[in-house]
Simulated assay, not measured.
Amino acid sequence: METLDLEQAARFLKLHPEELRRRARAGAVPAAKVGKRWVFLAPDLADYLRSFYAVPRQALQVMLGKEGNPCHLSNAARSGGSMLSPQTGNEYADLLGLKRKPSRRSITTG
Results as ranks from 00 to 15, higher is better:
A59D: 09
L15W: 04
F52R: 01
A24E: 09
N69L: 11
A10E: 09
E67P: 03
L49Q: 14
F40P: 09
G27Y: 01
A46V: 01
L95I: 15
G89Q: 10
Y48S: 10
T3R: 13
N69P: 02
K36I: 12
D47N: 07
L73G: 12
D94F: 01
Q87N: 08
A9R: 01
V39M: 05
G97S: 12
D94R: 07
T108Q: 07
G89C: 08
W38E: 00
D94I: 03
E19C: 06
E67K: 04
F52L: 01
S79E: 15
A42G: 01
Y92K: 10
P30Q: 04
S82F: 00
L96W: 13
G35R: 06
L15C: 07
N90T: 15
Y53R: 10
K14E: 15
G68P: 03
R78A: 09
E7A: 07
A93D: 14
T108I: 03
R23N: 14
L6D: 02
M63T: 12
K33E: 09
L73S: 06
Q87F: 02
Y48G: 11
F12I: 01
N75G: 14
R78W: 09
R21C: 00
A93N: 10
K14V: 05
V62R: 15
Q87R: 13
Q58P: 08
K66T: 11
S103G: 08
A32F: 00
C71P: 02
Q87E: 14
A10M: 06
R104Q: 15
A54S: 05
A28Y: 02
E7R: 01
